[in-house]
């Protein structure tokens, strides 16, 4: 089993950075809570997968990237998009299906895109986008650039052929790709141990002689530091890495799934909530004197206002014109 990376001690000189990590995690958490409310009110439709519980993965991993690196994610992509710096306005408007949304209302919850932020999509066929991550990395190598391409996917995707095909090519061609498996223990309602012969996702990299690390996915700094090592390997040596973040989703698989369902117990969820990345990291910052409780409350208050604005923006934005139905099918 691969060594689980844990966070180093806090460096007070990086206080601003830590506070930003916490802010992003809180933003995602509160954003998702608002999303749940709007969904319940029928303002948001379709499949909608909340990121609550997994915030440390997106925030920690993307904190290790540069703005010009490429990022892709799966359908549980609200957190990725926000952590990548996309605005709460454009993401919420997209969930509302409005023309001001990041995908002009045509993508929805599972297909958030921002070329400006190099967030190249939420992709909704499990495993299907993993080769695309390798492809972006191929382009980086082809052009001799020092960017990296990072892709998130759930642990259930690693039993999919696309995962293996992509990792094999990334390894054989030495592509600057970082594959981040968010292991939240369940592929929808099927526990990993019921679906996979090998429980440790990171171990899969052995088949491709690829570097790998397992991270505590509830510890934002652990994720950040492991990802930073992978980024260095990719940028400096054009080597791919498979990262596994051990995380947990506190909500159901999607909005149509009860929180615990038949496949996991209430007790298990309560037990996992003790690892809540927001609480553990927030407490740590307060204990280390990097942040006060008042600072924390002020941060939450600002996030609340930001989200009030985002929801109002989404509410007030226009629906796409009917003619938009036929645009963006082809580049003319």
């Amino acid at each position: 089993m691969a060594q689980t990376a844990t966070a180093s001690v806090l460096d007070t000189e990086r206080a601003g950075f830590y506070r930003e990590l916490l802010r992003q995690m809180c933003l995602i958490r509160r954003f998702e809570e608002r999303t749940g409310e709007s969904y319940a009110l029928g303002k948001i439709g379709g499949f909608c997968h909340l990121y609550i519980g997994q915030e440390a993965v997106a925030v920690g991993a993307l904190a290790a990237l540069r703005d010009d690196d490429y990022v892709m994610g799966s359908y549980r992509d609200h957190g990725h998009a926000l952590a990548r710096g996309m605005s709460a306005r454009e993401v919420m408007a997209e969930l509302y299906g409005k023309v001001t949304g990041c995908s002009r209302g045509k993508g929805g919850s599972m297909h958030l895109f921002s070329v400006e932020r190099q967030y190249l999509g939420g992709h909704a066929i499990v495993g299907g986008h993993i080769p695309l991550v390798a492809g972006a990395a191929f382009a980086i190598k082809y052009r001799g650039e020092d960017r990296v391409a990072l892709g998130f996917f759930g642990e259930a995707a690693v039993n999919n052929g696309a995962f293996h095909e992509a990792l094999n090519m990334a390894a054989v061609w030495k592509l600057p790709a970082i594959f981040v498996a968010e292991n939240n223990r369940y592929g929808m309602g099927t526990a990993m141990e019921r679906a996979s012969a090998v429980y440790d996702v990171a171990t899969r990299a052995c088949s491709y002689d690829m570097d790998r690390e397992m991270m505590d996915g509830m510890d934002v700094l652990a994720v950040y530091e492991a990802t930073a090592r992978a980024v260095a390997r990719a940028r400096d040596h054009r080597l791919p890495t498979l990262l596994e973040a051990r995380t947990y989703r506190f909500m159901g698989h999607s909005m149509s799934d009860p929180i615990h369902g038949h496949y996991r117990t209430r007790e298990e969820i309560e037990e996992q909530k003790a690892r809540d990345p927001l609480h553990t990291f927030g407490d740590r910052l307060i204990e280390a004197g990097i942040m006060s409780s008042e600072d924390h409350e002020e941060m939450e208050r600002r996030i609340g206002k930001e989200l009030d604005d985002a929801v109002a923006f989404a509410e007030e934005s226009a629906e796409p014109d009917p003619y938009e139905l036929y645009t963006d099918v082809y580049v003319d």
Binding site: Y70, I130, P131, A137, A139, E165, M169
Partner: peptide
Amino acid sequence: DRVVDTPITELGFAGVGIGAAMVGL
């Protein structure tokens, strides 16, 4: 670099191509 032999992995290299096209190749 420009004439690339692939493994027998149609899904994989089709996806790699699409990923490369996403970022401008």
